[in-house]
């Protein structure tokens, strides 16, 4: 089928003139539902190129990549934002992207090159267990400091996480336990189950429905190292300027997630799409990223807002697993996890 298509296109292109791509009037970014830049985020891009940027969001990262795989070659948009390091190899295998790793602006050392020439790193976030200080105080408990603490009977029935099958931070947490405990990870999870861990399908269910800070029963939740600044920014009523963040992070539990953006293969306007990807690592856009998406910018030289400097801890040594190993073992790990937990 591809051969026929290729031949057809070649014949069309044989007219002699270069294929002249007209500038589109809009581009679509396909992303997961946590991609929520502010309204004016793309103004600068539109001013410069005349192209309006729209966002088509649905589901979480896992679903995003699966849908991209199903629509590879006939994509639902021009650019994809939100494939992360745990899902990257799956997207590559499904031939979702038109290879383009933008070098328009310098990215952090720890992220450079990780896009394998196919996608561009756009942000990183550390997936960690967060704790609700007030709730733990009320229970007379110190915050946990490591993964081991989570299976301590003191913290029984206090933890909620999302499922690695359906949630990208959930998968990150699973990988964190694998990185920390090696082959003993199944034992660890059995002990978590014995300690009455609650597993829900998505991060937002965990954070907004079950976390004690938002009306739920559980003071320990799987979220991001950048969630405490969010709690400060959105606190209602607002907190005093020098108050500590209401939530904190268990730094020993963090797994680094790197998010990428890429040009979707088969889109109508690959040239324009590349321009948009360049814009996504432009400091103008990246400076908006922390307080709207609650992740760390990928581009160097972007100053972090004060809320981050004060309330988001530096995670120097996050847990990690090599992407290739993730690709080969991910299915098995998830299936085994399912057997142990569900």
């Amino acid at each position: 089928m591809s051969a026929v298509a290729g031949l057809t296109l070649a014949l069309v292109g044989c007219g002699g003139e270069a294929v002249d791509e007209t500038t589109p009037d809009r581009l679509v970014i396909v992303s997961h539902e946590s991609f929520t830049p502010p309204e004016n985020a793309f103004e600068a891009f539109t001013a410069e190129t005349g192209i309006i940027v729209e966002i088509a969001a649905a589901g979480d990262a896992g679903e995003l990549v699966a849908r991209a795989a199903l629509t590879a070659g006939r994509p639902e948009g021009d650019v994809l934002w939100g494939v992360d390091n745990t899902l990257l190899t799956r997207a590559l295998a499904a031939d979702v992207f038109e290879p383009y790793e933008s070098t328009a602006h310098p990215v952090r050392d720890d992220l450079a090159g990780t896009g394998r020439g196919v996608v561009t790193p756009v942000d990183s976030g550390d997936v960690c267990i967060n704790h609700d200080r007030a709730a733990l105080d009320a229970l007379g408990l110190e915050p946990p400091t490591s993964l081991d603490d989570l299976v301590d009977p003191r913290y029984r029935g206090l933890l909620v996480v999302s499922s690695p099958e359906t949630s990208s931070p959930g998968l990150a947490f699973l990988l964190a336990t694998i990185a920390e405990f090696g082959d003993g990870w199944t034992d660890y999870w059995r002990r978590l189950v014995d300690n009455d861990v609650l597993v829900v399908s998505g991060w937002s269910d965990a954070y907004y429905a079950e976390f004690s800070r938002h009306g739920g029963d559980r003071p320990l939740v799987l979220s991001y190292a950048t969630s405490p600044p969010a709690e400060v920014i959105f606190a209602d009523p607002p907190l005093a300027d020098d108050a500590p963040a209401p939530t904190g992070v268990v730094t020993g539990s963090c797994f680094r997630q790197i998010e990428y953006a890429g040009v979707l293969r088969g889109g109508d306007h690959p040239e324009a799409a590349r321009l948009l990807v360049d814009f996504l690592i432009d400091p103008a856009f990246q400076s908006l990223v922390p307080e709207s998406l609650f992740v760390l910018p990928a581009t160097t030289g972007v100053e972090l807002p004060e809320s981050f400097r004060r309330h988001a801890p530096d995670i120097d040594e996050p847990l990690s697993v090599e992407p290739d190993r993730i690709e080969t073992e991910r299915e098995n790990w998830i299936d085994t996890w399912r057997q142990v937990v569900l």
Binding site: M1, S2, V4, A5, L70, G73, R74
Partner: peptide, 14 residues
């Protein structure tokens, strides 16, 4: 359908 008509001029997805 999604898995069959996914290439070339028979790509009817969408």
């Amino acid at each position: 359908i999604v898995v069959t008509y996914d290439e070339g001029f028979l790509d009817w997805r969408g």
